[in-house]
């Protein structure tokens, strides 16, 4: 890896570790290899959102041309959000694309992602199904996002109704995550979800 990228990540690492957000346990970064090319990030769900209480793990890949090009970031923890793919974890955020600036750091990227969790942009979606639900039925969206946070990110809000519906589909032989995706996509209408799964 080019020297400038590795050196910079090393410096940033110290910056993140010393930052007050780490002290408050809001963000975290970990090295995955010695060459500073792959890192693991972690952000907590912002308070007063459906993601509250959850911990979201991110994959961070640092290109050789960093910081002139943005790091490649995606969610490893499954999440229900208009700007994040519920399938791949790919993120639609301008600063990770054309609005990147060389003075941005891992810390500002993680904080921006946290801000994205509290302020979705449904008009610039990554996941069209989620964005549609967000625009047409915000309460349904909130409930679904909270349920996903509970199941995949360790959030505190158990939703018995969702769990029961998933269990009914699992009893019919559907894989659990697939059942959750189908129900989430059809506003938890079990008949329509079943129809889609078995068609």
């Amino acid at each position: 890896m080019a020297n400038i990228a590795a050196q910079r990540i090393r410096r940033e690492f110290k910056e993140v570790i010393k930052s007050e957000e780490v002290a408050k346990c809001a963000i975290k970064v970990e090295l995955l290899n010695d060459s500073y090319t792959e890192l693991k990030g972690e952000i907590t769900g912002p308070p007063d959102t459906a993601y509250e209480g959850g911990t979201f793990v991110l994959e961070i890949k640092v290109p050789e041309t960093y910081p002139f090009n943005p790091p490649k970031v995606r969610f490893i923890t499954k999440i229900w959000h208009p700007n994040i793919s519920s399938v791949t974890g790919a993120i639609c955020l301008d600063i990770l694309k054309d609005q990147w600036a060389a003075a941005m750091t891992l810390r500002t990227v993680l904080l921006s992602l946290q801000a994205l969790l509290s302020a979705a942009e449904p008009d610039d979606p990554q996941d069209a199904v989620v964005a549609k639900q967000f625009k047409e039925n915000i309460e349904m969206f909130q409930m679904t996002a909270r349920h996903w946070t509970n199941v995949y990110a360790g959030g505190p809000h158990v939703n018995k109704e969702c769990d029961d519906k998933i269990k009914r589909l699992v009893d019919m032989g559907v894989e659990e995550h697939q059942a959750r995706v189908a129900l989430s996509s059809y506003n938890w209408d079990i008949e329509r979800a079943t129809e889609q799964l078995f068609s």
């Binding site: 400038i4 910079r8 910081p67 750091t105």
Partner: peptide, 10 residues
Amino acid sequence: QGVKCPVCLK
């Protein structure tokens, strides 16, 4: 002293 280059952070 005390001013950092925002790109390399040195």
